[in-house]
Amino acid sequence: MKTKLAFLILFVFVSGSALGKEKMPISPHANNQVKTGVIKGALLKDGKNPLPGATVVLEIVQGGNLILTIPKRTDPKGAFQFKNIFMSPEFSYAISSEFEGKRYSTDFVSLTEKEIEKRLDLIVGEGGQESPPLEESPMNKTDAPAKKGFNEYQLLAIILSIGAIAYAFLRRKKK
């Protein structure tokens, strides 16, 4: 029995290893070269004064879902730059930032092959575009879905736990 079990485990691990080496196609835009551009801009208070050392967030949306956020601090001139932005209509990008408890963001843009660099200045405060936070895609959500009651496994665990305490108590009594 032990030999069979060992053989089974070995077989599964070897199979897994073999599967692991299978070449998988990468996403369609990965054809011949990494075509990427740059999004740069400045964070401006009331449309005029640059805000150095503040946090701006690059929001990346794919298929209508927010899939990634990348925070960055502005430089001493209030400027920021995000490199490695895909030149693909599949992804859209916006810059957001929080200022005095409110959230401001730019419109979403995509980079095309003709446009290697895009400037997105973000105005916060007066003249800025306030917007509610985006919903993250289910894959990146940080909260577990709300559960209604316990499932059968959890109920079993609760019953067994109560039994365990009672058993420990009884064994102590007998002793």
């Binding site: 496994y153 959890q154 079993l156 665990a157 067994l160 736990s161 039994g163 365990a164 305490i165 058993y167 420990a168 108590f169 064994r171 102590r172 002793k175």
Partner: peptide
């Protein structure tokens, strides 16, 4: 795996309670 976890919890609770009642490493 799930069943192992479901059983591990009450067994750990038993080990904890037994230790509180003075039994060693049950």
């Amino acid at each position: 795996g799930e069943l192992a976890l479901i059983f591990a919890m009450p067994v750990a609770i038993y080990s904890f309670a037994a230790s509180l009642f003075g039994a060693k490493n049950r």
